[in-house]
Design a protein around this nucleic acid. Sequence first.
DNA 1: GTGCAAACAATCGTATACAATTTGATCATA
DNA 2: TATGATCAAATTGTATACGATTGTTTGCAC
Lengths: 234, 234
Amino acid sequence: MKTAAVPADDQIDISTQSIRDSIRDAIVDRRLAPGTKLSEADVGALFNVSRTLVRAALQALAYEGLVNVEKNRGAFVAYPSPEEARQIFATRRLIEPGILREAAKHMGPSHLQHLRQLLMEEGRLMAERGQTARRAEIKASGDFHLMLASMTRNAVMQRFMDELVARSSLVIALYGQSAISSCGHQEHHDIVTAIENGDLDRACHLMIHHIDHIEADLDMRENKGSDLREAFGL
Amino acid sequence: MKTAAVPADDQIDISTQSIRDSIRDAIVDRRLAPGTKLSEADVGALFNVSRTLVRAALQALAYEGLVNVEKNRGAFVAYPSPEEARQIFATRRLIEPGILREAAKHMGPSHLQHLRQLLMEEGRLMAERGQTARRAEIKASGDFHLMLASMTRNAVMQRFMDELVARSSLVIALYGQSAISSCGHQEHHDIVTAIENGDLDRACHLMIHHIDHIEADLDMRENKGSDLREAFGL
DNA sequence: GTGCAAACAATCGTATACAATTTGATCATA
DNA sequence: TATGATCAAATTGTATACGATTGTTTGCAC
């Protein structure tokens, strides 16, 4: 019985969407370790719903790439291979500069204000100690990219970025080494500054380097943690 | 009914995936008109499966943006609004040049051969008459972009393009006016030529213009066909 | 004839039941 | 003891059953 603790309590009227979000958050926040089995019955018991709803949630998460469902075996928190990780970051490098430019088109002073505010919060969390603050910091770091995506006013791009950021979190959870984001945080600030100055070329340049840095901080040698699975090409 | 029926007809082992693909193809091929209701019971009867599997398929399609599920009302073939259409093409403009460059990295003579071959087939279908040939032509047109995506060797990008091309087909089905693709076909050829010549800048340029042309051919005034739905902001 | 309300029908939302498959354990045998 | 076959327990795959919601029709009052 290795299923993780998720806010259980006596919740009623929890629908598929809520379950999906709860599991999603738990995965992205690293409360659920990659590879963890998500038994339909167990999860259902936690949320006091039937397997039907759990199944729907797990299938949706599988589509997002956050869980793998193996036929007749069950659903597991995704365990991205180094190759998958590479593809995820390659995709981000490809689309985030475009998102930046698109977002800048619609950006007014209030939007810049919001971005700065988010970065302040991020910085505040970095100063704190503790697992909780650390998770919140990582989340805030991703939220910066998501906020930029939301400023494109393009729902499609937003959804793509949602998926990319979520999967990136998983990858970082698996292969990240340093306390990193210290530099990442500064890079966020620099990007906003470049936008403020109207220097979009520079902003894009910084964004690409930022993504490069995140990826460079990963140690993607196989057998990290308790892997063994990808090690044999499965 | 139900009398120990031998695995009826040719249909055995139809799983969620097959149903999803069948419906997907039908939508993209315009055999299912936008707005058509997809009753769980009806679809299930067609495929001789229970509502459970149909539901799963419809939910997956909803995630792809090909059907809308309205709570307690059912699933309908998506009816993209002009705004959605705009967002879809904006996203394509944003990522397809990048895909082009990425694909070019891995492209050898055999790949170019494949692309040319696909274009030949596309051209052949354009010459023919009839609804079937017309559908095949539109499909082939989309396949060109999908083949480029597959050459990136990046599963994430591939999936994004899958979704974008499918939804584009839907939009074109709704708002397309001219017999179009005549010029689109030539543009495909030009793009391949540019790649062959190693002139990626030109290829990207052509790609963006190609997408512009597709979008420009749409007549997205509301009330197209039997709409009335979006006309009231629903 | 019009307008509203209540019953009816159809469809979806969720839970449960049963079948199929996998997994792990037990036991026989060399 | 090591190996392999057979069986039992657990878990997923699919179907069905029942309750809830929505849309339509009917009937009554005005």
